[in-house]
Amino acid sequence: MNQETGKLRMICIVCPLGCELEMETGREPKQIVNIKGSRCFKGIEYAAREVADPRRVLMAVVKVRDGHLPVVSVKTDEPIPKRMLLDAVKAISRIEMEAPVKAGDIVIGNLMGTGARVVATNNMRKAD
């Protein structure tokens, strides 16, 4: 970010097109006054969120006892604050589940007070 001119560049991550957004921020540091480069309205929404409160969907794996593989993949069901990602992975790494697991099973009901749930994204059957 270039503080002097209040200009900001970022690549939109909403879809694979990867629009290169150019923004001018207003006096309020978390406000955008002008934006160029977005090919759709989602990019403008993304930029506004990214400046005010950047969030990401987190994906990780969770240990499974007696599964046909040792871990099952999980994700947060909504984006969580970007600054919490590394701590959230540590919290998820401490969990251990028991096979079988179904995609959609809730692993954590409220991840570190964010309100986001951690859900399994794959099925895991019991080891033969």
């Binding site: 970022m10 690549i11 939109c12 991550i13 909403v14 879809c15 694979p16 097109l17 990867g18 290169e20 990401r56 970007k82």
Partner: peptide
């Protein structure tokens, strides 16, 4: 790679 992956996987 895709531009969005450079942003969200490296720059982030």
């Amino acid at each position: 790679g895709l531009a969005r992956n450079v942003q969200q996987c490296l720059f982030d």
